[in-house]
Design a binder for these strands. Structure first.
Lengths: 183, 183
DNA sequence: CCACATATAATCAGAACTGACTAATTCACC
DNA sequence: GGTGAATTAGTCAGTTCTGATTATATGTGG
């Protein structure tokens, strides 16, 4: 449903053809949505079948023909419903690492610590890339960057706790990373 | 893959039949994994086809026959690989609400505030249920509860920020909820 | 002792999703 | 002026996931 909300919201702003939609998502929204190109075409087709968007094939010059998608009145109504559901409705998320942590006791202290440290390092890298993005992205995306940064910091804090419960008293701040995960 | 890790990890502990696995997951792990019953059967079948678990049909009394699943040596190896990948490998998550927040500007201040407040209320309820669970769950699950609580508090903090950027200066602590989201 | 709810055990059709592939066009540059 | 890379645009076969359904057995109140 959230993919439908996204596509309806984009088409609400202006009609677009499939490739254009995918380009926009890849360039502007890849950091906060996961929508593969083929999945976008699938969802657009579904929206058509449900009468929420209309498609019109056109061709410009000699390029392969392309379909222009346009939101319908029914689609506009659906957008309003989905937006409110998306905002007010909370579905508790699941975290893949919880499964790993359940079985963490199977590993020796040293290896467990090394694996968690590798994860923390990857999270730090991702954090840095978001901070870099914040500088170049349109200002209305800043709230979403802040959202991700808050969760990233929560995750790093928790991983420290997980390590503390095992042997390692506290994660040594890695000089190469530059800080302890906060601005 | 995480579903495979979970099932291999459970079977590593003891052989089980399908219904038993589903019961265990529903009762002990529903708060941290999302694995429908039919999906569990699908994954078990896939693990069989890949030679990672073996199945043996048996019948007890006159009940419908059932399949007992047992991890194979190849499955044990795969478990070791998946566990390490799960712990060390970080895949940045996506949050459904980010889509809604992108379009939040479409709504009037009052309705936006009401929808966000409804969400906060739902998150509070979920938080309370996790705190209640922490008291009754086996101690090795406590780390996971703490994980979820940290993210929930990050989420509540962020929603306050989102409201603050609009009209509402700060979320009024709801007396019916009892606190501001922290122990 | 029988009607109806609950527990046990799983199947299946269909929806959702994705990686690999096709095919034409244009652009750079040698 | 040809050729290899990049861009434009989308299809498709195959995998993954789930709600609805089937079927038998056991408990339980009247």
């Amino acid at each position: 449903m959230d993919r439908q909300l996204l596509l309806l919201g984009l088409l609400r702003n202006q009609e677009m053809h499939g490739y254009q939609i995918n380009e926009f998502i890849d360039e502007q929204m890849a950091f906060c949505v996961d929508l593969k190109r083929s999945t976008a075409y699938y969802v657009l087709d579904k929206l058509c079948r449900d009468g929420l968007v209309s498609e019109e094939t056109e061709r410009e010059g000699n390029r392969p023909e392309r379909r222009v998608y346009r939101i319908t009145p029914a689609g506009e109504q659906r957008f309003q419903v989905l937006l409110r559901e998306n905002l007010a409705g909370y579905t508790p998320p699941t975290y893949a690492i919880d499964i790993g942590v359940i079985f963490l006791a199977q590993l020796a202290d040293a290896e467990a610590a090394a694996l968690i440290a590798a994860r923390q390092s990857a999270i730090h890298d991702h954090r840095a890339s978001l901070v870099a993005l914040r500088a170049v992205l349109p200002p209305n995306h800043v709230a979403i960057i802040e959202h991700h940064l808050l969760h990233i910091d929560a995750e790093l804090t928790w991983l420290d706790q997980v390590l503390a419960v095992r042997g390692i008293p506290h994660r040594a701040a890695d000089p190469a990373e530059g800080n302890t995960g906060h601005d």
